[in-house]
């Protein structure tokens, strides 16, 4: 596994909400075409840390990030980086499905349209490709002009994944993507993650340790803003090094 090149790397990352030190000196590297799971109790900083990778925290008043995040070796916090360009490479799927109040088709092609793509054939083709990748195509192909809000929660979330994939990012950040879904929809999303890692580097935040064990190649355990341990998922769940990881995955707290 260590043969794969490193896609994303955090170096000495600290982050603050005002005076609150939320992320404490984290170093982590994620390899290309792998799934990394972030686990840890609520408030441990895992979601905050995830949102550092596409600079989603930039809009929060008083939020400050220190250190370097390297995407393909380039620091995304460097002065000359265009945030909107960065986010075209680092897609994000949120905890609650958040489709736009538009048609299914308009949702999927949104990212391309804002990039100025107006060729109808290209948009239609991209929409079909993304919906197929998100395993939603067969369910919606006859109703592309239907409102996205009419879909079920699980379908909405796959639509949001399709929307993120349509602009061909190389990294996909998923913030508890299945926490608001029923078990069947969750299973579909997990299956999808397995397929998507062929083409994307995926980072997933999850509260559900079984989920982390099922979908990820490596797992990182966060506690009180620190990265306690990052290892192959199998090792992590069978033979954790740190006693806090041990306590958390055996359910002693969290």
């Amino acid at each position: 596994m260590s043969k794969k090149p490193i896609k994303v790397e955090a170096k000495d990352v600290n982050a603050y909400y005002g005076d609150f030190h939320a992320i404490k000196g984290i170093n982590i590297a994620m390899e290309e075409n792998t799934v990394t799971a972030f686990i840890g109790p609520s408030g441990c900083g895992k979601s905050t840390f995830l949102r550092i990778f596409n600079r989603m925290n930039d809009y929060i008043d008083g939020f400050k990030t220190e250190g370097e995040i390297l995407l393909d070796g380039q620091n995304i916090y460097a002065k000359n980086v265009q945030v909107d360009e960065l986010r075209k490479k680092v897609g994000m799927v949120f905890q609650k499905p958040n489709p736009f109040p538009k048609s299914i088709y308009e949702n999927v092609v949104y990212g391309l349209k804002i990039q100025g793509v107006s060729n109808k054939a290209a948009l239609t083709e991209a929409a079909e490709r993304a919906l197929k990748q998100a395993a939603l195509w067969n369910e919606v192909k006859d109703n592309l002009n239907k409102s996205a809000l009419a879909l079920s929660g699980g379908q909405q979330q796959r639509l949001c994944i399709a929307r993120a994939l349509a602009i061909s990012p190389s990294v996909l950040l998923m913030d508890e993507p299945a926490s608001a879904l029923d078990p069947i929809s969750t299973a579909k999303i997990e299956e999808l993650i397995h397929e998507l890692k062929e083409q994307y580097t995926i980072v997933i935040v999850t509260h559900n340790m079984q989920q982390a064990a099922r979908v990820s190649d490596t797992t990182a355990f966060f506690y009180m803003g620190e990265l306690v341990e990052h290892a192959k998922t199998k090792t992590m769940f069978t033979n954790p090094k740190d006693s806090r990881t041990q306590d958390y995955i055996t359910g002693r707290f969290g």
Partner: peptide
């Protein structure tokens, strides 16, 4: 969440305002 979705796909503030 809709604003975040839009920013998350690389929209500028202006695009987010007028398109979402």
């Amino acid at each position: 969440s809709l604003r975040e979705a839009s920013y998350g796909m690389g929209s500028t503030r202006l695009q987010t305002a007028f398109r979402v």
